[in-house]
Design a protein around this nucleic acid. Structure first.
Length: 571
RNA sequence: GGCCCCGUCGUCUAGCGGCUAGGACGCGACCCUUUCAAGGUUGAGGUGCGGGUUCGAUUCCCGCCGGGGUCACCA
């Protein structure tokens, strides 16, 4: 019986920080392809860098994946919303590479035995010096294979390895041309001699990425490797290792890269750049902002602040402090950033699906389909439709996807999302606004919010005390204090009339309030704006707010009347 | 610099020898409107350049130009 072997894909992040948005796309495509083909999606944690890896990062990455809805069939277990994701149904774990070192060592030893790997004893400083000389001479540095020739036989190499002397293991690179079969780019030929004898086991005894990946992809039965194009040049190394170890070569698909709109790499350091620029602009405007003064303002040690300004460091905590103090938004780079900024996971997965991939089908209205959910992706994802050209990450378009999702959402669902988001990032909002208030706001919020965090702006009038909101002086001068038009009542009259009208209004609902304002405007032969704007400014201090009925109803009668008094005093 | 990859509106993209080169975001105009939004209608905007192949090139080939990736005891 010949059934096609099951497709097994994997996402293999290194746990050295949060999940990058580009990594999220890689994971999404690997997941979608496995789903589409009825296969397995594996999560493997590549923690062979002892110095930089952390369990906390691994947990964070799993949390971000789960939040996006990208669930792995096998891999480390993670509890999300009370459900456990992961496990080891095929018995191919463990999924942390640090726990697989014994396995790598078996294969490493085999490679030495067959003469394809050898110990090398140069220090990294020695090699670095040689590399510098080569670079200065505009030459490509390649390891000279000295250690290979120094110890001529496998038996002697094994003996030296076991002697306890510090060393690395290098792979004896093949001298023939290598072909990387890639399902996106086609066959890529690497000329003979391009590969040098790269390190496959570090002095600390851990395998390098190249070696661990090859062994794991083989032993975990990975059939399709999808990753970003930055890995393209790694692939010939992996193919060479597979050949030396008599392993299969899985199918490869290298995806185009994602950049910022200005074509720079999307990097965590972008946050520091933005913060630094903000700081510099502030200093230009206000000479009293010395590093010392800034240090106090930011609660950061002065030397670090000075270094930060001089681009000597890119400390994230400083960037975040700047964002807080100067009330700016840092660019979102990692999934956690987008989550904090109030994006919906559905908008993110939809948007990143379109970076380097497109479904290539029309929707019912005859237009190119581009709004779809993760379920659609899992039924339609095809490697053949992965593009070749790099993409720029347009946050404006992402925001529009998010806004549309919010607009289409039911009030109840929006309130639920809002509460979840606020609980995590703006707990004071849920403390100040009741469920009833939030529900009322939800409908008014929908066309006004691009992301959940916009609630803070749209609902800001309700988040301050009745005596704490400030009046926009321009609005007060233009509307409240202005002389009334010929034959029209003054703002003072309108507000006083409205106050008594609202005071006796039994049903303080948005509809009833709107009806009252309408009938008042009609009775005085005023345009709606003539009544609405004075009222809006009196109640919120600003010319901008949700529709008045909602605005007043959310505040409630007592607050509305109290605010009206404050407004009247401004006339 | 060596090796490798890529090149359709500002951006994401559709296109797989013949199309008025389509859609989305953004932008402009108009309509609607109690503010801000949202919504509706509508407009501008693209095949990097030069050679071939072909009756015919966005599409195939070559060169140029431009962009990117990679050259670690990081992944």
């Amino acid at each position: 019986m010949t059934s096609a072997p099951p497709v097994i894909t994997r996402f293999a992040p290194s746990p050295t920080g949060h999940l990058h948005i580009g990594g999220a796309r890689t994971a999404l495509f690997c997941w979608a392809y496995a789903r589409r083909m009825g296969g397995h999606f594996t999560l493997r944690i590549e923690d062979t860098d002892q110095a930089r890896s952390s369990d906390e990062s691994a947990r964070g990455i799993m949390e971000d994946l789960a939040w996006l809805g990208i669930e792995w069939d096998e891999g480390p277990t993670h509890v999300y919303n009370g459900r456990t994701i992961g496990g080891d149904p095929r018995n191919v774990g463990p999924f942390f590479q640090a726990r697989r070192v014994h396995l790598y060592n078996q294969y490493l030893r085999k490679l030495v035995e067959i003469g394809r790997a050898y110990p090398a004893f140069e220090s990294s400083e020695e090699l670095e010096a040689k590399r510098k000389i080569a670079v200065a001479a505009k030459q490509t540095y390649r390891y000279d294979r000295a250690a290979y020739h120094a110890i001529p036989t496998p038996a002697e190499r094994l003996k030296r390895m076991d002697s306890g002397e510090p060393h690395v293991l290098r792979f004896l690179a093949p001298s023939h041309e290598l072909i990387v079969p890639d399902q996106v780019l086609g066959d890529i030929k690497i000329p003979a001699g391009e590969l040098d004898d790269f390190v496959i086991r570090k002095a600390d005894g851990f395998p390098t990425y190249h070696f661990a990946v090859v062994v794991d992809d083989e032993t975990m039965g990975i059939t399709h490797v999808m990753r970003a194009q930055e890995h393209l040049y790694n692939t010939p190394r992996h193919v060479a290792l597979q050949q030396a170890l008599s392993f299969r070569t899985p199918a490869y698909a290298h995806m185009p890269l994602i950049f910022n709109m200005d074509a720079s790499k999307m990097s965590k350091r972008d946050k520091a750049k933005v913060a630094r620029l903000t700081l510099k602009n502030a200093i230009q405007k206000d000479a009293s902002l010395t590093p010392a003064a800034l240090a106090t303002k930011l609660s950061i040690e002065e030397p670090a602040v000075a270094d930060f300004l001089a681009a000597e460091n890119d400390r994230l905590d400083i960037a975040e402090a700047v964002a807080r103090v100067f009330k700016i938004n840092l660019p979102e780079i990692e999934v956690a950033d987008f989550r904090q900024a109030g994006y919906l996971p559905e908008a993110i997965t939809n948007f990143i699906s379109l970076l380097g991939w497109s479904p290539g089908v029309k929707s019912a209205d005859g237009k190119d389909l581009e709004r779809f959910d993760i379920g659609f992706l899992s039924q339609n994802f095809a490697i053949e439709r992965i593009g070749k050209t790099n993409a720029k990450f347009d946050r404006v378009k992402l925001a529009s996807f998010d806004a549309q999702l919010i607009a289409e959402m039911s009030d109840a669902e929006l309130v639920k999302r809002l509460k979840t988001w606020c609980a995590e990032f703006r707990p004071e909002v849920t403390r100040k606004l009741s469920d009833d208030q939030l529900t009322m706001l939800a409908a008014a919020l929908k066309p006004r919010c691009k992301v959940l965090s916009d609630i803070v702006n749209v609902a800001s009038f309700a988040l301050v005390g009745d005596n704490d909101y400030t009046f926009d002086p321009a609005a007060v001068a233009k509307v409240l204090k202005a002389a009334p038009k010929e034959g029209q009542p003054s703002a003072l009259t309108i507000l006083t009339d409205m106050k008594s009208g609202l005071e006796s209004l039994e049903d303080f609902s948005p509809a009833a309030i709107d009806a009252l304002i309408h009938s008042y405007a009609e009775s005085k032969a005023l345009k709606m704006g003539d009544v609405a704007q004075p009222l809006r400014i009196a109640i919120t201090g600003s010319t901008v707010s949700p529709p008045l009925g909602v605005t007043l109803a959310v505040l409630g009668k007592p607050s509305t009347l109290a605010r009206l008094s404050r407004g009247i005093a401004q006339c």
